[in-house]
């Protein structure tokens, strides 16, 4: 019979390996193999237990690799793996949905000393996180321009909109959108000044996630609308920071991007 050789009615003795003890050493290479784990015929279990350690670490690094491909390409494979290993030891997923893992990877990058000089990296990571959010977001039809055209001109300024579930806005002190876009399209960073502040809009009309950079005032405009403000209020917010804000172009762009799903009905 394929029984462990140590069969005997050990019951729940004090030597029982709790799952807490089993998991406690998984991500801490300084800890010994938990006592109570063995191989067959009294064989040692160090390399055996290390299989689990390796599976967990490599698996979670792989998850970060899938979520942050631009960061991976920007810092290189070897560096990314070492950096991800540090993160994995600090932070484990809090959900079996791996695409939710690494929510604070951008904050980790901000304080991870070896990448301090790549100050744009955290915002590129935030953009990748927003991209993944949009990829999995609920389906919803984008706002139809006909619906907006049907509004009487004098009532337009009072309209409010419902944001599409995929829509996210990222405001960056760096050229995060250009760096992200160049990276994902396989281009290098030539011609990009990382110090140029950029605002990005992430949307998904149907299945393809789109990332575009916003002109001056664009982020204020869209954030005001997402917050439930009226079109008039949003235009005011944009004009306050950018005097020559082009309202007609902004409305056209928001429709084209599918940033909103419907006009909010009046109370």
């Amino acid at each position: 019979m394929p029984r462990p050789d140590n069969i005997g009615d050990a019951g729940e003795s004090e030597s029982a390996v709790t799952l807490g003890r089993f998991s406690g050493a998984l991500l801490d290479p300084g800890q010994p193999t938990p006592a109570g784990l063995v191989g067959p015929n009294g064989k040692k279990a160090d390399k055996r237990y290390n299989v689990y350690r390796n599976n967990v670490t490599v698996g979670l690094i792989g998850a970060l690799f899938d979520i942050y491909p631009a960061i991976h390409r920007l810092v290189g494979d070897e560096f990314f793996r070492a950096m991800a290993r540090s993160y994995v030891r600090e932070r484990q997923p809090q959900s079996p949905l791996l695409f939710r893992y690494g929510g604070d990877f951008a904050e980790f990058l901000e304080r991870f000393e070896p990448v301090r000089e790549l100050a744009y990296l955290p915002d590129v990571a935030r953009l990748e996180r927003a991209w993944l959010h949009a990829f999995h977001a609920a389906d919803a039809p984008p706002l139809d321009s006909a619906a907006l055209a049907a509004i009487a001109p004098e009532e337009l300024a009072d309209q409010r909109f419902i944001a599409h579930p995929a829509t996210r806005i990222l405001r960056s002190r760096f050229a995060a959108v250009s760096i992200f876009s160049a990276n994902r399209s396989g281009a290098d960073l030539a011609g990009i000044d990382p110090g140029n502040a950029e605002d990005g809009l992430v949307t998904r009309r149907e299945f393809d996630v789109e990332v575009r950079s916003l002109p001056g005032g664009g982020a204020e405009f869209l954030l005001a609308l997402i917050d439930g403000g009226t079109l008039g209020e949003a235009a005011d917010a944009a004009t306050a920071v950018t005097q020559d804000f082009d309202l007609a172009a902004a409305i056209g762009a928001m429709l084209e991007a599918g940033a909103f799903t419907a006009i909010a009905t009046r109370d």
Binding site: P4, I7, A10, E12, V17, G36, V38, Y52
Partner: peptide, 11 residues
């Protein structure tokens, strides 16, 4: 890859 000493039956 490992066994638990406390196991009292086969898999």
């Amino acid at each position: 890859y490992v066994q638990f000493e406390q196991s009292s039956m086969s898999e």
